[in-house]
Amino acid sequence: MANEISKEGRSLLDVIAETGKLPEAMNLRMNGHTCERRVSPNIDIKNKEDKPGIDVTVKPNTIGEVISIPVVITDGDILDKVYNTIDIGAGSDVTISAGCGIHNDSDSCSRHDGIHDFIIRENAKVKYIENHYGEGNGSGENVLNPETRIEIMENGVAELDMTQIEGVDSTIRTTKIVLHDNARIIITERLMTSGNQRADSNIEVIIDGENASAQVISRSVAKGNSVQNFFMTLTGNAKCRGHIQCDSIIMDNAKVASTPKIYAANTGAELIHEATVGRIANDQLTKLMTIGITEEEAEDIIIKGFLD
């Protein structure tokens, strides 16, 4: 833990790791190394022995604690691949703030592939907040390929809030969820791309448990020449409910593809997929203009509201 966090690193942290509360446990990874760590009596964090990454273990019935595990990259020409395993003990109720901020002033690529494996045990409740953000003046690309796999045991609940609205040139997001009896997940994803950026998001939810439910809300805005691809898969293997709602706004020359798949293998499975892609509705723009707002401001207000 030799690294000192730089000024750029600090300001990136302010963008990505804001939880409104000082975390009880934290692990800050900077430029490929852990540079700050704090644990609590209920939350342990250890390095993995066989590969880069950490094991976070939350004791059963840990209530109200916040765990922050941000990643910051301020060097160019870096490929940081990290495996984190997060074990949430039964009956816990915790908030986890993750995410990656890249400041790349170089002309070579900065890339972070964060692989998170969660197990959320019986009756546990987790709020997971992930913020991805890039900046920098070099021509080097900022690349983020997060992979999040979550298994939720009986009566467990997870709420995922995933945001990437600026500065990431290329991203392939993979999210895979397995739900057991009475488990519940709510995923909210917000994405914005511009310029020549490219974003893929693959979300797969497999509902194996009776009375489990999944809700996926994906909202995106594609500007400039950017391209977005969504693959949403929902499988119901039991009496369960699942709902995917995928809305995208396209502007300029952007392109968005949204590919839904719902698969029911049980007559008690109720699965819904809704997807829309389109420009900002004219009646919304017109309404705002009639209250004195210019068309450009109106677009901005509508997009901010949509992604909020």
């Binding site: 909202r219 009646d283 705002l288 209250i291 004195g292 207000i301 509508i302 509201g305 949509f306």
Partner: peptide, 17 residues
């Protein structure tokens, strides 16, 4: 037929107006 907005809040619209 008033416009609907995914996301824009009542308070915000009225502040703007």
């Amino acid at each position: 037929a008033p416009a609907k907005f995914k996301g824009l809040k009542v308070g915000r619209l009225l502040e703007l107006a």
